[in-house]
Amino acid sequence: MAEYATPDPEWVPIAATLPPQFDRNIEPAVLQEEWITVTQPFLAQVNKPLLPDDSKYRVEDHQVPVEGGEIPVRVVIPNSGDAAATYPLIVWMHGGGWALGDIHQDDFLLRILSFELQATIVNVGYRPAPQYPFPTGLNDSYAAVKWAASNADKLSASVSKGFIVGGQSAGGNFSAVIAHRAHADPFFQDKPLTGQHLSVPATLRYEAYPEKYKSELRSWEDNKDAHVLNAESMRYFFKHYQAPADDPEMSPALYPSHAGLPPAHFQVCGLDPLRDEGLLYERLLREADTPTRLDVYPGVPHAFQIAAPQIALASKFRNDTFSGFRWLLAGDHCV
């Protein structure tokens, strides 16, 4: 994938200001505090000027029962002026290496997305690793998807208009696994998922690469020293998530079949260690007759749109997020 590896000219001067390596000795609690106090306010600052007027949507906070407790979910519902209106349902899982972030991370982005798509969005506050290792966050997210489906009428939603799971990075990993779980779960027989948004997803741990795919899975080595996310930082997150590498619920590319899954929108970055597994997973779904849309961002790393929201590819990434969801909602399965 040499065409994806040449650094984007706008990214080069930004990369020069960033540390290339990840401090693997830092405690997750310290990293989480830094994430919440530095990264999340920056994301809010980027998105706040783009927020629609408060009158265009409403926000509800709920608690969802899960095994061993409750988790928060934040629901954004459009206000079209018609009290009886119903909207497509999207359930969103945030990124952060299964260990970082909370429902505040993508709050403003999801308010914008809800208004632009005219969709109800459920933002899941799953419990993070390492305090809650695999599969707790995944199970929390799955419980939230079921809760959203069961309460759709109370959330001004109709799954017949669209029922999508989505997220970035770890959230994309959860979404891919949830799509497989839901396909096999009788609970979803009369309310099937209609789409999955897989943004820079983790789909296949490097320790579990099947021999037949190793020749095309080069990004782990090629981008081992990448900015933002590199091989060392991924090992750090894998260590604290504690998921077996060869478990399909960690590495969904290893499911024996991908038949019957809902359409999938992929976003993949050229300088991301996860690049080639994302490309492979898109191909595996396509070969199983799942409709896919693939957007690739050459020459930029994982989560570049957070580090460099001002560059042209970041604008494209954002626009593709919106248009990708529209593509998922425009399928024949959504009415």
Rank of each mutant, 00 (worst) to 15 (best):
V75T: 08
W98D: 02
W92G: 01
W92T: 02
L50F: 15
H94I: 10
E70D: 15
G95S: 05
V75P: 10
F42Y: 12
P49F: 13
V46C: 07
S114A: 13
V91D: 05
P88Y: 12
V59I: 00
Y87C: 04
V64T: 09
E60M: 12
V73D: 05
D102G: 09
P49C: 10
Q63T: 08
Y57I: 05
N47M: 04
L43M: 14
E67D: 15
E70F: 14
I90D: 06
L100S: 05
V91Q: 09
P65M: 14
I103E: 02
M93F: 13
F42E: 11
Q105W: 04
M93E: 05
R74C: 12
S80N: 07
D54P: 03
N79F: 04
K48C: 00
Q45I: 13
H94R: 12
R111P: 02
N47A: 02
V73M: 07
W98H: 08
Q105I: 10
I112G: 09
D106T: 03
P52E: 08
F108N: 01
V73W: 05
V75L: 11
E70K: 15
I112K: 10
Q45G: 06
I90N: 05
L51M: 06
D54C: 00
E60N: 08
A44H: 09
E67A: 15
A84C: 00
W98L: 01
V46E: 08
P41G: 03
E67G: 15
V91Y: 06
D102N: 13
A83F: 11
K48D: 08
E70Y: 13
L109P: 00
D61E: 12
A84T: 06
H104S: 08
D53Q: 10
L100G: 04
L51W: 13
T86G: 07
